[in-house]
Write a protein that binds this DNA or RNA. Sequence first.
DNA 1: CTGGATCCACTTTGATACTG
DNA 2: CAGTATCAAAGTGGATCCAG
Lengths: 116, 116
Amino acid sequence: MAHECKVETALDILVGKWKPVILFHIFQKETLRFGELHRLVPDITKKMLTTQLRELEYHDIINRKVYAQVPPKVEYSITEYGKSLTPLLESMHQWGVSHIEHLDEIYGEDQMENNK
Amino acid sequence: MAHECKVETALDILVGKWKPVILFHIFQKETLRFGELHRLVPDITKKMLTTQLRELEYHDIINRKVYAQVPPKVEYSITEYGKSLTPLLESMHQWGVSHIEHLDEIYGEDQMENNK
DNA sequence: CTGGATCCACTTTGATACTG
DNA sequence: CAGTATCAAAGTGGATCCAG
């Protein structure tokens, strides 16, 4: 167990139906309340939003700050450590963009519905 | 629809319970037969190995070369295009490695069973 | 407002046996 | 050798309702 492939370690943290979008918004806004996030990603249910956030929090990617007040207020933000993901996410995004172009070359630009 | 987040595009291709390991081996060996791969990843079933390989093939990451002979012989290899994944996989691996170290700092090195 | 708790549908993976 | 086919098990996400 010296230095095998740890790609999965990174994947574990990024994978989740909504994590990329969530991270996208939190990275962009620096800090967001639960409800704000929910409005930015309307299709997600509160349950999923909660669990995905908790997982990211568990991995120390985002902070969860609870204000002791009524009504409740909870703010999510990127941790310092979480920022170390920036170059990786950027790389993945870039590769994704070029991959879409590659698909054009292969299958032609006709059937672009594939990229929902 | 100019240039939203395409992180998911990359994830779609890399995600799969066995894809990272499979890619790891194919990248390393350049070309592998079905049975060889299976021996390198013993826990996977033939069914899963087949489907994961087909998905990678569909995305033009690997080649599938069938030799018309008996008994059958099929070789898998990285496509030229697939090689464009190298830096990304390397980045993910690196981040994964450092993340494991980060976990040590946070939770201590005691409960390392978490990294199965 | 920010969740937690349940229940259910759908998807993914696995076990096993069979085939050209 | 390199798969397919079939069925069962497990995992995941969604709908809905409840709560501090």
